[in-house]
Amino acid sequence: MSTAQTAQYRLSALKIELAPQEPFTVLAIANTGNVPLDFKVRVQQWQQRATGEDELHLLPANSLELVAFPNLLHLPVGGRAEIRLGHRLPAADVERTYRLLVAEIPPAPQGIGSETRLVTVHSLPVFIKPAVIRRQGQLLNAQVQQGTLQMTVSNRGNVHIEADQITVRGLAENGQRLFELRPQREYVLAGVTRPLMPMPLPQDQCAAVRTLQIVLDIAAHPPTTQIERPTGVCR
């Protein structure tokens, strides 16, 4: 009978941002488990459709657009390694977006009765900032149905928006704050208008909610929308 293991390792970052004046960085990876690990590193171009779906295309191994080195890593138990990431691209008007794939290479089977191991792939967003940053966005089509909030974000700036930059507050009749929460992290790339995943609302005081206030905190005067007397806050 075979048993299953899951490798344990830690990355020093879950998002990477580069700039024209800071074109290089280092991502550290540490093996915190009790088995040796091997990884393959690749870079993908990343775009989004209006429906919110990602479009990903692997860069050729010899591409100099965005370079990750080394492409193969071996980490003994307790070992640590660094992935160097950099570009030589000129400053652009719009943020360039990529995904860094750090994929565990499954170990070779050792024969009947050997242990099997679940392998993982991390897909880290990589952003190359433009020379001048313009943050501009709008909240659209916010509505509540069956205990969930649905909304669309229109990114009219030249850098990405993160969904957890949105604050949702449930307010009572007298303005008392009943709850405050943020959506799970999603990305809306520059120039894209896309719906976010439906967001469950707290149910313990749902009947007392008289206003839903939604703030997109990306500027000094953040875009704000309110749903008055919302129906459907309670499931």
Rank of each mutant, 00 (worst) to 15 (best):
R80F: 15
V159P: 02
I105A: 03
V168R: 01
P230L: 14
E22F: 15
V35H: 01
W46V: 02
R229Y: 14
P106I: 15
P106A: 13
C234P: 06
N31K: 02
R177V: 13
V102Y: 03
L75R: 01
L100Q: 04
Q226W: 12
A163Q: 08
D93K: 10
R229K: 14
L27T: 03
A207H: 10
A92H: 09
D164F: 03
Y187A: 03
A61D: 13
A81C: 12
R182F: 06
T3Q: 08
C206W: 08
Q213A: 12
H160T: 04
Q136I: 00
T224F: 13
V67T: 10
Q5E: 07
L100N: 05
L100W: 14
G170C: 06
G175A: 05
L59I: 08
L178C: 08
A220F: 13
N34G: 00
H122Q: 11
P90T: 07
R229C: 14
L18D: 04
H160M: 03
T224L: 14
P36N: 00
A108Y: 07
F39K: 00
I29A: 01
A4D: 05
K129E: 09
D38H: 07
A91C: 11
V77K: 02
E95C: 09
Q110H: 04
N71L: 10
Y187H: 07
D164K: 03
A4G: 00
L196K: 14
P198H: 07
T32L: 00
P107E: 06
V41W: 02
N62W: 13
L58V: 06
L118P: 00
Y98T: 07
L149P: 01
P198F: 11
Q48H: 09
L66H: 03
